[in-house]
Write a protein that binds this DNA or RNA. Structure first.
Lengths: 213, 213
DNA sequence: TGAGTATATAGGACTATACATACAGTTCGT
DNA sequence: ACGAACTGTATGTATAGTCCTATATACTCA
């Protein structure tokens, strides 16, 4: 039920309508958490039933009325409890690995095409990350130009830490994924995708001592 | 819906009961695909309704009767179609990243403990992988000692390719995860978990050219 | 002797999420 | 002038998966 807490988290920033929240998801956490629009509205109803949020109807002349949700003190409490707790283990579910597990039933071209398709997806993802990082840097430069105090700049930078942490995760995993796929494709093309080669690769990573930073 | 195909995949190896399939899952693909026991039995019923599998009741004296499922030609066809198709994009869902996204609402010790808990889990996962790799190597050495022909050894090695590919994925991601968490913890302890440091990290990975193998 | 684990199958209730659709007005591009 | 996309909330339905429980027998360990 992390969706509920994600919504509470967004509401700690400012009051939002269901529609706003959906856009927040798309704009900020899409790369590791997607939320169905219908699920958001239902979660808001449930959160309100638990008194963790409240709402006011905001009438608009040109647009449909908004229900502006705000977090209650009880909601802030619940969110802070959740955010400081260790994250639950997630059950990974990777259709790609399931297919590759049965690689011995694939002929060479099919295996190559499965890997290539995945590599394209990863490359696209990494490009998207690069774009996001650029846009964050542009926004930041813009903010700093207009900022009235150093405090405001520092506060702005602090708010960026969380989102940037998630981006470092996405980028590092994306790069690891790309290297893994490239390695597999390369070996496969040279007919070197063998048990021995894979075991060697495993040892290379298992035995690698920590690289100092 | 990959569960059904995973089951079909296992049945291409040999006939299995629902109970056997559950053990297969635990023994071989647990690190990227878990299957609920009840879900397996339901999937088998559905697969049989679609004529992709059949079963015979096997009576046992001491144990309860087994329903031994086998794959039908139609099932093999369906499986081969699935396995050669590019894997669908999966919606990632990472509670940890959701928490870290709101890192600015956490105090320093809480952030450290969330990261440390995750690092422990990753270390444990990597140890499990190391253990699995060792056991595969032991089994392999054992098999080679007893093998009657080089062909048998080669066939055995070929069957290992798929499972080993999934292990290289697990290990590489595990190592990437460990490095990421260690980097964050290290920076955090030195009060250096700032927007600037994170942006520098992002650039280090985004701009890195491919390392030749 | 009793608790726990292994073998073996299966239904009920529940949770989370996805997909489609409905309604209703506005704005933008062609 | 017309359709598409945007703003905004909401319901209905389907799918996938989890957790709990039931049933029955046998073996193992303290």
């Amino acid at each position: 039920m992390s969706l509920r807490y994600a919504i509470l988290g967004f509401l700690t920033i400012r009051p939002l309508s269901g529609y706003d929240i959906k856009r927040f998801f798309n704009a900020s956490v899409r790369h590791f958490w997607t939320a169905d629009q219908a699920a958001i509205y239902r979660a808001l109803t449930e959160l309100e039933a638990d008194a963790l949020v409240g709402h006011e109807r905001v009438e608009q002349q040109t647009r449909p009325d908004r229900k502006e949700y705000h977090i209650t003190p009880l909601g802030v409490e619940a969110f802070d409890r959740w955010v400081t707790q260790p994250a639950p283990a997630v059950a990974r579910r990777e259709p790609l690995l399931l297919k590759l597990f049965f690689a011995s039933r694939m002929n060479a071209p099919d295996l190559a095409s499965v890997l290539t398709a995945e590599l394209s997806a990863v490359d696209a993802e990494l490009s998207a990350f690069t774009e996001i990082v650029s846009s964050i840097e542009r926004d930041r430069a813009e903010f700093e130009r207009q900022a009235e105090s150093d405090d405001a700049v520092a506060a702005h930078a602090r708010l960026l830490v969380g989102p940037l942490i998630t981006l470092t995760n996405g980028v590092r995993f994306g790069v690891a994924n790309r290297e893994w796929l490239r390695g597999l494709l390369d070996a496969h093309e040279h007919g070197a995708l063998t048990a021995d080669a894979l075991l060697a690769d495993l040892h290379r990573f298992i035995d690698t001592p920590v690289v100092g930073r």
